[in-house]
Simulated assay, not measured.
Amino acid sequence: MSRATPATRMLDGARVAYRLHSYDYDPAADNIGQAAAAALGIAAARMFKTLMIELDGKPACAILPADHELSMKKLAATLGGKHATLLAVTQAERITGYHVGGISPFGQKKRVPVAIDASALEHATVYCNGGQRGLQVELAPQEIVRVLGATVAQIAAAG
C-alpha cells in the first residue's frame, strides 16, 4: 500500500504531525469505521468517518465519530444551510477524487465547507481516513480544524 496519497501530501505541506496506520479493509463490514477501529485496537469514539453531503445544492463535508449517526439538521444549521442530504457515491467520488471507503477529508480535489463533531476535541488524537481503503491517519483534532478551516459543532445525532 502506498503511503503517499493526496491526503498525506496535504498534511505534509501543512506541516502537520501525524502517524499512519494500516489495517485489512473489509468492504463487507456493517460499519466500516467501527471495523477499522476494532482492527487498530482503538475506541470507536476516536475513529472519525468522513461523509460527503449536499447542502442546499452544494457539496460539504462532515467528520464525526464512526459509532455515531450524522444529524442532517444540526449539520445544515452549523454550515448556514437549510437542507442537507448524503451525496450519492458517484458524486462523492467525483468531488473528492477518492473511492468510498477511502474518502479522506484531506487532499480532496475540491475544497468544500467542513464541519467536525465537537467530541473530537475531547481526545489528544483521533483517526480519520488517509486517502485509501485500509489507511488511517492519527493526528491532533486541532490540526484537522486548522488545516481544513473546519467548523466545530455538535453534528452527531443524539442517542
Rank of each mutant, 00 (worst) to 15 (best):
R19Y: 08
S22L: 05
S22K: 01
S22Y: 01
Y23P: 03
Y23W: 08
D24T: 11
D24A: 12
Y25A: 04
Y25E: 08
P27F: 03
A28T: 13
A28Y: 07
D30K: 12
D30C: 05
A35Q: 14
A38Q: 14
A38C: 10
A38I: 11
L40A: 04
L40Q: 09
G41P: 04
I42F: 07
A43H: 06
A43F: 02
A44G: 15
R46G: 13
R46N: 10
M47S: 09
K49W: 10
T50Q: 02
E54F: 02
E54G: 09
L55D: 00
G57A: 04
K58W: 10
K58G: 13
P59E: 04
P59T: 04
L64P: 02
L64N: 01
P65S: 05
D67H: 15
H68Q: 13
E69K: 13
E69R: 14
K73D: 06
K73P: 00
K74L: 11
L75W: 01
L75E: 01
A77K: 13
A77T: 06
A77V: 12
L79T: 01
L79K: 01
K82N: 08
A84W: 05
T85N: 03
L86Q: 06
L86Y: 10
L87R: 10
V89A: 05
T90M: 11
Q91V: 12
R94T: 15
T96F: 03
G97Y: 04
G97A: 13
Y98K: 13
Y98C: 14
V100E: 14
G102H: 04
G102D: 07
S104F: 09
F106E: 09
Q108P: 06
Q108V: 14
K109I: 11
K110E: 15
R111C: 09
R111E: 13
R111L: 12
R111K: 14
P113G: 00
V114C: 12
A115T: 05
I116P: 07
S119C: 10
S119V: 10
A120T: 02
A120F: 01
A120G: 03
L121F: 00
